Computed example of a mutant assay.
Amino acid sequence: MKKFLLFIAGLVALGILLANLGPMVLLGVSVWLLYVVFKQFMKTDSTAGKIAWMIAGLIILSVAVSNVFAVIGLVAAYGLYLIYKNWTSQKEAAVPKSDDPFTNFEKQWAEMNK
C-alpha cells in the first residue's frame, strides 16, 4: 500500500513539474539575463547607458516576477526526488551489536559478497 501511495504521489508531482516546465525555463533565463544586465550596468560609465540598462533590468525583472509560479515546479521536482529516495531505500535487518569478533566477521563477509 505504501508503494502504491508513493507511486500516486510521484505521478501527481510529475504532472505538476511538467505543467510548470515552461515557467521554470523562463524564470531561469530571466534570472540569467538579470545577472547580465547587472554586470553591464556596473561596467557602464555613461548616465544614458546606466538608465538604459536600468530600464532593461526592470523589464526583465517583470518577466521574472510573472514566472514566480515556477517555484511550485521546483518544489514538485524536490518532491519527486524525495519519493524516489524513499522508494529505493531498503531497510536493513536489525542485527544485534556484539563484541564477538566472529559475528562481526560474518557480517563483513556477507557485505563483501553482495
Rank of each mutant, 00 (worst) to 15 (best):
2 K>V: 03
2 K>I: 06
3 K>H: 03
4 F>C: 10
4 F>W: 04
4 F>E: 10
6 L>V: 03
6 L>F: 07
6 L>E: 00
7 F>Y: 11
8 I>D: 08
8 I>W: 08
10 G>P: 01
11 L>D: 07
14 L>G: 09
14 L>H: 00
14 L>I: 08
14 L>S: 05
14 L>Y: 04
14 L>K: 04
15 G>E: 05
15 G>R: 04
15 G>Y: 08
16 I>Y: 04
17 L>S: 13
17 L>W: 13
17 L>Y: 14
18 L>P: 02
18 L>C: 09
18 L>F: 09
19 A>M: 11
19 A>E: 00
20 N>I: 02
20 N>H: 02
20 N>Q: 00
21 L>W: 12
21 L>C: 06
22 G>Y: 14
22 G>Q: 11
23 P>S: 05
25 V>M: 11
25 V>E: 03
26 L>T: 00
29 V>K: 10
29 V>D: 02
29 V>A: 10
30 S>I: 05
30 S>H: 03
31 V>H: 07
32 W>H: 13
33 L>R: 15
34 L>P: 02
34 L>C: 08
35 Y>D: 12
36 V>L: 15
36 V>S: 12
38 F>R: 14
38 F>C: 12
38 F>Y: 15
38 F>V: 13
39 K>R: 13
39 K>E: 04
40 Q>G: 05
41 F>T: 04
42 M>W: 01
42 M>L: 10
43 K>I: 12
43 K>F: 12
43 K>W: 07
43 K>H: 10
44 T>I: 07
45 D>Y: 05
46 S>I: 04
46 S>L: 00
47 T>E: 15
47 T>F: 15
47 T>H: 13
47 T>W: 14
48 A>Y: 10
49 G>P: 01
52 A>Q: 10
52 A>V: 06
53 W>M: 09
55 I>E: 00
55 I>L: 10
56 A>R: 05
57 G>V: 03
57 G>H: 06
58 L>D: 04
59 I>P: 03
59 I>S: 07
59 I>V: 12
60 I>T: 01
62 S>E: 00
62 S>K: 00
62 S>I: 06
64 A>W: 08
64 A>M: 11
66 S>A: 15
66 S>H: 09
68 V>R: 07
69 F>A: 14
71 V>W: 14
71 V>I: 15
72 I>A: 09
72 I>R: 06
73 G>K: 02
73 G>D: 01
74 L>H: 01
74 L>S: 02
75 V>E: 02
75 V>G: 05
77 A>F: 02
81 Y>F: 12
82 L>R: 11
82 L>M: 14
84 Y>Q: 12
84 Y>R: 10
85 K>N: 12
85 K>S: 12
87 W>F: 15
88 T>S: 06
89 S>Y: 15
89 S>I: 15
92 E>P: 00
93 A>N: 09
95 V>T: 07
96 P>D: 11
96 P>I: 07
98 S>D: 04
98 S>A: 02
98 S>Q: 01
100 D>A: 12
100 D>P: 04
100 D>V: 05
100 D>M: 11
101 P>M: 06
102 F>P: 00
104 N>Q: 10
104 N>M: 09
104 N>T: 01
105 F>Y: 14
106 E>Q: 13
106 E>W: 13
106 E>R: 15
107 K>G: 02
108 Q>E: 13
109 W>L: 14
111 E>P: 04
111 E>Q: 13
113 N>E: 07
114 K>I: 10
